[in-house]
């Protein structure tokens, strides 16, 4: 990610000309805990994917579920709803 601008770099009123520039803002940055799967217990039912409010949980090429940490906000709904309780929430380190 490009370094953040200082106040002198901002155009008056901060208009934006770049289309879709909101995509530059990865909304997972404020996450304080991340979901960790125990794939031995996972039955690949996809409930975590269905409940994820960010729709950022997807199976990988082996069908193992993972969260995209660029967008995961660490809400823990996946861990709460998991049928086999195979997801635990791990605190982000400083």
């Amino acid at each position: 990610m490009a370094p953040l601008p200082g106040w002198k770099d901002l155009p008056p009123g901060c208009p934006i000309q770049e289309p879709l520039s909101a995509r530059n803002n990865l909304t997972g940055s404020w996450r304080s805990a991340r979901p960790i799967w125990d794939h031995d217990k996972c039955v690949r039912c996809g409930v975590c994917d269905l409940f994820c409010p960010e729709a950022c949980i997807k199976p990988d090429h082996e069908g193992l579920y993972q969260a995209n940490l660029d967008y995961c906000k660490g809400c823990g709904i996946c861990a709460q709803e998991c049928v086999t309780q195979c997801i635990s929430m791990k605190q982000e380190e400083e």
Binding site: G13, C14, P15, I16, Q17, P19, S21, A22, N25
Partner: peptide, 10 residues
Amino acid sequence: NPWTFGPVGI
């Protein structure tokens, strides 16, 4: 020549 005015300021 589109501009976005008044965007979100995180």
